[in-house]
Structure formats: structure tokens, C-alpha cells
């Protein structure tokens, strides 16, 4: 619509719906309204402690002005493969709550993305909230993103959580959907870094763009998660 490629008969400002707002920190999960902005994710002190990975990733999205307006819902709901938050949510094993005319349903972030711009959300549903489990205390985390400059999407990005007997890895902008691999998590949990990276790479299908040809992307898709893993491991505490 902004780019004058679409004409719509109605425009609904979701910002006026209170249920879509707010960050609530529970005992073992946080509930994030779909209209929570990237700026709020960064500024919220309690959230930074509960799920520091969210803040670290949000700081790597766009620039201050865009983060003041960019919402979590807008970032994850439409299935844009460039966006950082979908992979992040898969890494965190978030649950999306969507609401339609009749009912409300929960969809796992890991089941949500079908292909570029196609998701499990029906046309008459909107995303209302996201539930993110709080990682166990001492869990190491890292968000690594290679980009050409601030304001650019990832050439390759990786979100990593790693704790005692547990790990999760997701990657961004390396296929038409975010790439989360169960095997990669299992391998990393068992201390097998290289096994984790090869499992994660098995699922990628990068496309050539101005960031570089496919072989370049395949290569950095190996480098970036290794760095994320190393940084996450260095942060494991207790």
C-alpha cells in the first residue's frame, strides 16, 4: 500500500487494540503482544533479563527509528524470509496465538512458516500474542548476523541457545522459511559443535542476491552459526 502497489478498501490500525500490546513476564514464559515494538523489546529491563537473546537480536534489526515502529507481529506474521524474528522465535520455541472470527488457536513458531509469505495463519486470523518460554537460568545465548551495513537484512544470521543437556539453533535468510533443525540442537546439546553446524546446513537453500552468490552464502552460513555457538557457550553460567 505504501509503495502504491495495492489499493485497499479498509485500513485497520491494530495499535488501537489493547490486547495486542504489552510485555508480561510470567514464571516460566513471557507473553508478548503482537504490537510490541522492537524498541520496547530492547528497552524493557525485565525482558532483557528473562530472555536476553530477544534484546540482542532486536538491536541488530534496522536502525533506531525503524525499531521504534517495527512490531513483533509485523515482523513474524507475514512470513518474510528476510526478517530476523521468525528464526529467533523458532530458536526460542515460541508459540503464536492467532485469533479468527470464531476462535483462538495456538501455533508453534516451528510449524508456522510454510514458504515465503505463506504461513499457517488463515486469512481471517490475526496474530495476537507470542508466548516465549524463559530459558533456564545460566543458558548461553547469542544472535550473530552478518549484514552489509545497519539497515540491511542478513547475509546469514543464527540464533543459538545452549544450556545443560539442551540446545537450539535457528538460521535466517538462508531459505524461503527460517531454518530450525532439531538434529542440530541435539548435536549441540551433546557437545558436538561440528555435527550441529552440519545438521543446520543440511536444511538451507540460499538464493543469490546482491549480498552474494549461493556458494558465498553457503559458506557464511557455516561461519555465522559457529560464531554464535562459541559466543553462546562462553555465556553458559552455573
Amino acid at each position: 500500500m505504501k509503495l502504491r502497489m495495492a489499493v485497499l478498501s479498509h485500513l485497520v490500525n491494530l495499535r488501537d487494540i489493547p490486547d495486542l500490546q504489552g510485555i508480561e513476564i510470567g514464571a516460566d514464559s513471557v507473553s508478548l503482544g503482537a504490537m510490541v515494538t522492537q524498541h520496547e523489546l530492547i528497552a524493557h529491563a525485565g525482558l532483557g533479563e528473562a530472555v536476553p537473546l530477544l534484546r540482542e537480536a532486536a538491536l541488530q534489526i534496522a536502525d533506531s527509528q525503524v525499531r521504534y515502529l517495527g512490531t513483533l507481529g509485523g515482523n513474524v506474521a507475514n512470513g518474510d524470509p528476510d526478517n530476523d524474528m521468525p528464526g529467533l522465535m523458532q530458536c526460542l520455541d515460541a508459540t503464536y496465538q492467532v485469533t479468527g472470527p470464531d476462535d483462538l488457536r495456538q501455533i508453534q513458531a516451528r510449524d508456522f512458516y510454510e514458504s515465503a509469505y505463506f504461513t499457517a495463519r488463515a486469512d481471517d486470523e490475526i496474530l495476537t500474542r507470542l508466548m516465549v518460554p524463559i530459558p533456564a537460568a545460566g543458558t548461553g545465548y547469542a544472535y550473530e548476523k552478518q549484514k552489509r551495513k545497519i539497515g540491511d537484512y542478513a547475509s546469514a544470521a543464527a540464533a543459538v541457545l545452549v544450556g545443560k543437556g539442551f540446545a537450539s539453533i535457528a538460521m535466517t535468510n538462508l531459505a524461503d522459511v527460517p531454518v530450525w533443525s532439531a538434529e542440530a540442537g541435539v548435536a549441540l546439546a551433546a557437545g558436538d559443535r561440528e555435527g550441529a553446524v552440519s545438521a543446520a546446513l543440511a536444511a538451507i537453500d540460499p538464493q543469490e542476491d546482491m549480498r552474494g552468490p549461493v556458494e558465498f552464502k553457503r559458506h557464511v552460513a557455516g561461519v555465522v552459526p559457529r560464531r554464535a555457538i562459541d559466543r553462546a557457550l562462553s555465556r553458559v553460567a552455573g
Binding site: D63, R148, K149, I150, G151, D152, Y153, M210
Partner: peptide, 27 residues
């Protein structure tokens, strides 16, 4: 980084300031 690129069909590939490299304060 700055480049005006075209694909094999002659399409212009660097029409936005994301792909046409303008440095920011950072870097």
C-alpha cells in the same frame, strides 16, 4: 560496496539504499 548492478535480463538490481551501498555512521 557501491555498484549499479544489472541481471542478465538487464533488470536493475540495486534500486534501493539497502542494496546500493551508502555507508552509515556505524562502520
Amino acid at each position: 560496496g557501491q555498484e549499479i548492478a544489472y541481471d542478465d535480463m538487464g533488470n536493475h538490481k540495486t534500486a534501493t539504499l539497502m542494496d546500493f551501498f551508502l555507508p552509515t555512521t556505524w562502520g
